[in-house]
Design a protein around this nucleic acid. Structure first.
Lengths: 95, 95
DNA sequence: CTTATTTGGTTTATAATGTAAACTAGTTTA
DNA sequence: TAAACTAGTTTACATTATAAACCAAATAAG
């Protein structure tokens, strides 16, 4: 009847991040912060959860003098996102 | 960019309940429990939250000797569900 | 210079949420 | 009449989400 919803994706902020990363393939912390409107603290926590789950990679480097955190979605992240969307359709109907 | 997701609906079990009530218009506790696979305790809590939010009504009666809890979706519940689905599309793309 | 402000975050404390287990109240079956 | 079942509710705990506080360094202002 209802497919289970991956709890790692069933979160507004994490879902927004994944949605962005699917379309851009690479994004830094500030970009994600601006696009999602999240606070830095919350974003930091949620990015780490996605990374722990293997859905994204987090790479730290420097851009000029400032530190920079770059996120990319992984193969398994793309798969998980697609599965999540399909599961959702069992709840909301696939219009 | 991303529309906010109604937190009252952004819950696996509450979403499943709303999904069922949209299609059947009326359902008793046992029916919802069976279809969602939820535990009775969890279902009880989540139904009350939906009722507090005005998304469903809960009516208590007796069916034979047994107590019976009947749920119906409200106008505002239908609206909220539709809004939620539309908001979701800003995250997952409207395939 | 040196102090304030900004960038780019992380850590931590608290509030909100979700869930199962335990409980209530009564009914049916053996 | 005792065990098991229906139909839930309450409660306690674990998980999650979020903002506030913090940190380190860079830049800007006086």
């Amino acid at each position: 009847m209802f497919k289970p919803l991956d709890p790692l994706l069933h979160s507004e902020l994490r879902l927004a991040v994944m949605s962005l990363l699917i379309s851009v393939q690479e994004a830094d912390f500030s970009f994600l912060k601006e696009k999602t409107g999240a606070t830095a603290g919350n974003l930091s926590v949620q990015l780490n959860k996605l990374a722990e789950g293997g859905y994204i990679t987090i790479e730290k480097s420097f851009k000029g003098n400032y530190p920079q955190t770059t996120c990319r979605i992984t193969k398994s992240g793309i798969k998980a996102f697609e599965d999540y969307v399909n599961a959702l359709k069992s709840y909301i109907g696939k219009k």
